[in-house]
Design a binder for these strands. Structure first.
Length: 676
RNA sequence: GCUGAUGUAGCUCAGUGGUAGAGCACUCCCUUGGUAAGGGAGAGGUCAUGGGUUCAAGCCCCAUCAUCAGCUCCA
């Protein structure tokens, strides 16, 4: 005689059903149409008080794909999973994001099904859902070709058309291992051995003739995955370790309907249209020249102008906030890099030494040693501290050949770098000021959201130098600063630099993407290595503490992110050309020249199109260049000293007096306005 | 660095072994116009680089460089 369990539905009603009842049974009991529409179910044991965040996070992890579910947390189950305890039950339809994730995991199984039907020699790794689709890592001697991918996709359509139910099979571990061993499925064997214990019953899912080691859940049947595409193939290391065998990773994406799939590819096109490498060419901002080498940026006049504007702002702001601008050499003697520890710890990222006269020199990968030499050049009193040295310093780092990416990952870049030498007592206020500064940078450049991470040490990890009390003090001050400023943050133990803890600020762009740029780091290692001192109130020498901070991070990377954030449509103060002039015909050229002169005299950047093209073509050209304002100049305007204003993304606003426009334009620039 | 793909005019791309193509951009001519492409003519290429196969290579083979999608690593 089976026990009764309680099922609570979202409306609060409770049903008593026999243990072993499935979510499908419940749905079907409500209405067969509902049962047909439901994809998966979300359950939470009724006894649970609150969802544990860590357990929820674990749900997404690789570990969770195979090992048992976190017992007390809410979880997603398939419709045919028998329920054996009192739970709240939510029946999820296709519009729930959790359903889509499950469907994509099912799509990975469908792809594996198709793959093994076509290429039975293939060995399977793992095939999870991702944020935008799914992939399956597989091993096969022969690389898959584009044609193979198309064939796989076509066969997937067959698997979907067969509408094979996904069925969970619980099997003794030994038997599963024996089966996989006989098939030489070395990766599946590894996963079973890693994620299950001897004596466990392990979970497999079968659809048709295909069975996979998998915890689930899945959609009810292959027919539920209506729209999918095999998108690409790439290499991936077995277990993410580059010393291991490389596998073939086949990517795909899946949706419940063709409309969503289309929308997904449309969105990819939009992202591509924002790509800073594409816009960099279209707007003539920068280039990378093969003959000069990979990862080295050429700033063209228009990009250079934006950079100059960014840097001017940054320098002015540094000075306003009590920094002193310094400049340090690009190459320095090897000896210096030995003292700083770079020879020892950073050599693989540095360019090899070059010999000059009797000595060896190395290109700088960081600015800190240079700033330290300035500090060290004269004795310092506690009255001199803090010393804040800032530099827009060009550094060069060797990056492996496959890693470069436009402006975002390069071999030569400019850090807006500063080093603050201060007493331990000054740390908190200095860090607080750095965070204020960082916030101001993000706000000024139009980013509204950011995330903060506090990276701390792991006392068990030997790579961290310095005593426990030093670490605790430092982490304590950082924590206090963040708490006092009411900034939410995530603590990441073990992610600190080896010499001290750090605060990283990741900004969120218009598309919701995260970018790591600003960082504020602690350091008591370099002051010790260089024997830095100041004379304290007690007349005795003390060692200062150093704060490293970069706010743009790298000017190149920040610029790349800006291009994507604005989709190339820079706000007025940054736009390389702020006003485009369109004289309607040649007889308006003189008026155009006088307007240009007056706008330029007021400090605006103006370009006049005096070609013999039609007005519409001129407007189009300025429009494609994303110029904020286009002024149309014809008889009416010339007669009344006015301009007809066309605003980027808004269109024709009619004529106004030139002085009125000038006033508006100057205000937009002065206020760093994001709007026009 | 690894796996796969790609490299043809300033840009976007076509060209499967037999004398290098298109559109846009550029130059010149015509056109002088009211809010996103007026018309015509011309000029422009060591087909990434270096080897090889072939009577003949942009095309086939090898190597190198660069780019792209990932992996790994990072500001």
């Amino acid at each position: 005689m089976s026990n009764l369990i309680k099922i609570q539905l979202p409306d609060g009603s409770i049903r008593e059903v026999p243990a072993g009842t499935t979510p499908f049974d419940i749905a079907n009991g409500i209405s067969p149409r509902l049962a047909a529409a439901v994809v998966v179910a979300r359950i939470r044991p009724l006894t649970t008080v609150a969802v544990n965040e860590n357990e929820a996070a674990l749900e997404q992890s690789e570990e969770a794909m195979y090992s048992g579910p976190a017992s007390s947390a809410e979880r997603i189950v398939g419709l045919s999973t028998p329920l054996h305890e009192d739970v709240t039950l939510e029946l999820l339809k296709e519009n729930d994001p959790a359903s889509l994730r499950v469907a994509r995991h099912s799509a990975a199984h469908i792809m594996a099904t198709a793959l093994l039907e076509l290429f039975p020699e293939t060995k399977l790794g793992h095939g999870p859902a991702t944020d935008s689709g799914f992939f399956y890592d597989v091993y096969r001697e022969v690389p898959f070709t584009e044609a193979d991918l198309a064939a796989i996709e076509a066969r997937m359509a067959d698997v979907v058309a067969r509408d094979e139910p996904f069925v969970q099979i619980l099997e003794p571990r030994d038997q599963a291992l024996a089966d996989y061993k006989s098939d030489a499925e070395f990766m599946k064997i590894h996963f079973i051995e890693r994620f299950t214990k001897p004596g466990d019953e392990i979970s497999l899912y079968r659809n048709g003739n295909f069975t996979d080691f998998c915890r689930g859940p899945h959609v009810p049947s292959t027919g539920r995955v209506k729209a999918f595409k095999v998108t690409s193939i790439a290499g991936a290391y077995w277990l993410g370790d580059e010393n291991n065998q490389q596998l073939q990773r086949i990517y795909g994406t899946a949706f419940f309907n063709a409309k969503d799939l289309d929308a997904h590819f449309k969105q990819l096109e939009e992202i591509k249209a924002r790509d800073h490498r594409v816009l960099g060419k279209q707007l003539d901002l920068f280039s990378i020249q093969e003959v000069a080498g990979a990862g080295l940026i050429f700033w063209h006049p228009k990009g250079g102008l934006i950079r100059k504007t960014m840097e001017d702002w940054m320098r002015d702001e540094c000075i306003r906030r009590g920094y002193q601008m310094v400049f340090t050499p690009h190459i320095m003697r090897r000896e210096l890099w030995k003292i700083s520890g770079h020879e020892e710890n950073y050599a693989e990222n540095m360019y090899p030494p070059m010999e000059l006269d009797d000595a060896e020199y190395r290109l700088k990968p960081m600015n800190c040693p240079g700033h330290i030499l300035i500090y060290k050049n004269s004795p310092k009193s506690y009255r001199d501290l803090p010393q804040r040295y800032a530099e827009l310093g060009n550094v060069y780092r060797y990056e492996r050949s496959g890693t470069m990416h436009g402006l975002l990952r390069v071999r030569g870049f400019t850090q807006d770098d500063a080093h603050i030498f201060c007493t331990p007592e000054q740390i908190e206020s200095e860090v607080e000021a750095c965070i204020d500064f960082a916030e101001s940078v993000l706000k000024t450049f139009g980013f509204e959201k950011f995330l903060v991470e506090l990276s701390t040490w792991d006392p068990k990890d030997k790579k961290f130098i310095g005593s426990a009390d030093k670490w605790e003090n430092a982490v304590g001050s950082l924590t206090r600063v963040l708490d006092r400023k009411n900034i939410p943050y995530k603590t990441i133990p073990g992610e600190a630099a080896f010499y001290g803890p750090k605060i990283d600020i990741k900004l969120v762009d218009v598309l919701g993407r995260l970018w790591q740029l600003s960082t504020v780091q602690f350091d008591w290692n370099l002051p010790a290595r260089f024997d830095l001192e100041y004379i304290g109130e007690d007349g005795a020498p003390h060692q200062p503490v150093m704060v490293h901070r970069a706010l743009f991070g790298s000017v190149e990377r920040f610029f790349g992110v800006l291009i994507e954030h604005y989709a190339g449509a820079f706000p007025m103060w940054l736009a390389p050309v702020q006003v485009g002039l369109v004289p309607i015909s040649e007889k308006h050229h003189d008026y155009a020249k006088s307007v240009q002169q007056r706008l330029e005299a007021a400090g605006l950047r103006v370009e006049a199109d005096l070609s013999n093209q039609k007005m519409n073509a001129k407007i189009r050209d300025f429009g494609l260049q994303k110029v904020p304002f286009i002024l149309i100049l014809g008889d009416k305007e010339a007669a009344s000293d006015s301009v007809s204003v066309r605003v980027r993304a808004k269109g024709d606003e009619g004529s106004v007096h030139l002085d009125a426009f000038l006033d508006r334009a100057k205000k937009l620039v002065a206020n760093h306005s994001m709007e026009l």
